[in-house]
């Protein structure tokens, strides 16, 4: 089972703070499943022209997917995926 956590405005699109997924082998597959479950608001934020959008930060086990293979980042049972919008602070 893969644990998926949602934060900030992403929660407005999902209506939940977290969910679980079983089966997706990559981040892209997971996001496609989530887009199907949560509709166009989530999908529009997560995807840009078929690719994962720059408007979201996605971490797998604390690592930004930009450093682990992007959408092809492999997933396995026990992983934690965190989905954030682009945010800042200081």
């Amino acid at each position: 089972m893969i644990k998926v956590l949602f934060f900030a405005t992403i929660r407005d699109y999902t209506g939940v703070k977290e969910t679980e997924a079983e089966g997706p082998g990559t981040v892209m597959e997971l996001l496609t499943e989530l887009a199907s479950a949560y509709g166009s608001a989530f999908s529009d934020e997560a995807f840009e022209e078929g690719e994962i959008s720059d408007r979201v930060i996605i971490m797998v086990n604390g690592r930004h997917i930009a450093h682990t293979g992007g959408g092809n980042t492999p997933l396995k049972s026990g992983d934690t995926v965190a989905v954030f919008p682009i945010i800042g602070g200081g």
Binding site: A8, M59, A82, F84, I87, G89
Partner: peptide, 15 residues
């Protein structure tokens, strides 16, 4: 335009 106005700097806690 969105992140800081909506949640302030505390939006960083979770990330």
């Amino acid at each position: 335009s969105q992140g800081l106005p909506t949640y302030g700097t505390a939006v960083l806690v979770n990330v």
